[in-house]
Nucleic acid binder design. Sequence first.
RNA 1: GGUGGGUUCGUAUAACGGCUAGUACUCAGGAUUUUCAUUCCUGCAAUAGGAGUUCGAUUCUCCUACCCACUACCA
Length: 536
Amino acid sequence: MGERRTRVRFAPSPTGPLHMGGVRTALYNYLYAKQHGGDFILRIEDTDSHRFVPGAEEYIIEALRWCGIVPDEGVDADGKVVETASERHPHAPYRQSQRRGIYRRYAEELVANGWAYYAFDTPQELEAVRAAAEAKGETFIYNQVSRMQLRNSLTLPQEETARLLAETTDWTVRFRMPENTVVAMDDLIRGHIEVNTDTLDDKVLWKRADELPTYHLANIVDDHLMEISEVIRGEEWLPSLPLHYLLYRAFGWEDTMPRFAHLSLLLKPVGNGKLSKRDGDKLGFPVFPLQWTNAEGEKSRGYREDGYFPEAFVNMLAMLGWNPGDDREMFTLDELVAAFSLDKVQKAGAKFNPDKAKWYNREYLRLKSDEELTDAFLPVLAAHGITVTGCYACPVSADFARKEFSKNYVKNVVALVKMRATFVADFWETAPYLFETPQAYNEKDAAKFWKPENAGPALEVADFIAGFEGPLTAAALEGPMEEFIRSREWPMGKVMNCLRLALAGVSSGLGIADIVATIGKEEVRARMERIMNVLG
RNA sequence: GGUGGGUUCGUAUAACGGCUAGUACUCAGGAUUUUCAUUCCUGCAAUAGGAGUUCGAUUCUCCUACCCACUACCA
């Protein structure tokens, strides 16, 4: 049994966008599969015809792809949608709605061997029974006691059962939960768990109305048919684990039953409770990997659109509830595959920390080359009406009037601002003045620094810069410029801030030498003239 | 209500039953710097409570408290 191939699956329901907790579950499944040289399967569990949301499946696929989680098998194997079975995909199709023909006979098999029965209660009848129980302050459970008072194949005469089966379509197949039986289970993360069946109910396994199984049946049948070796899923499934164990027993599949691992939930950063899809925008951070627009046209932000790198997002997510056993925090997907281990997965729920997510992005941003960041910055510049021309080998050029800059100029800017940014979009916010001549000056800063005793010296420093000989680099300029100011015994800070106000419109930010070396002598002169005209 | 799961600084976590309970994020202070940012240094801050086992418990057992999930013809 230990020799069998590792095959795990991620089986989301297309009832909406996948949220980050779902991505984490998919990630852990993926890491486990790859580490064991096995298969990662993406199966779509669309057995609830009422809750189907158009676009959700596509969203799930795109989100996983963005994260670099590519299924070996499933609806999106190797980045291509698989619809039918083939030699390469003998287990297809992977959408449960396309497998509906499979389930009925398994449900019937269970009825035949006494593990299930036909139930003829209509949804309305059950609702009434529940309401009645609630009125008495009780909770109705469909179990070994109550089922004998209801209409089903255990209480009705055989002919009546046959007639209802043939003539009505409201019936279901329900699991016949055994009485007073202790189910002993083992979880890879939580250890040994025991539950008495008397606390469990008779779950619906198959619905005649839409000829579809419920989660429980579909799940067990498909996991068996697809030869799943480990089931790694969310903690919300732990209460139904006894039923699943019993189902494997009922089918006689216990010898190939997968091993189970139930992952703790992702909790919201403040207060208690799990991170839910609705918390999204209220809390000021995305809960979805990608932006999602619902049927009402309301948008929920996504990590991708917010400017997160997929590597940062995945790394952050991996560390939420898992650790490598040492102090390492930075992992590529491949490194995660190598380091991952289910027994290092935390049992308790993990509160998501938005600050840490940002920190990860900052770290990954710094790891990236200036060229890569420049390329990522281009769309942001375009949105601000900046035209970028040329190539990385071309000479540097800047035309502030026409808002036209060479690629190398942009790269110089990126090199200057990358240590101050969390997201690529921050490059612009940090120093718009490296692309646009300041049109206005920060009032507070101007009031504080633009005084005759500072402005005069600042203008003289500008003249010094204009007359500076040799290549105009920050390193070459810095020393002589400071020496120039110092030799005249001017207050360094005040003069510098005055100069920065003229060049940047604000008194704080990048180093003067860096700004000057970037925008060039001509633009420096233009900006000094402009501030004289505006502030006098 | 019932069943199951969980509980180490604010957060994520580390600690064969054995040093002063470590690290990262956040926050605060300091150094460097023309400002801001970076960087570096320092600091704040935790074993939910109570019994028990033990020479010794964050770690094992039990009880209590609190939190979470489940309790649908949803997954």
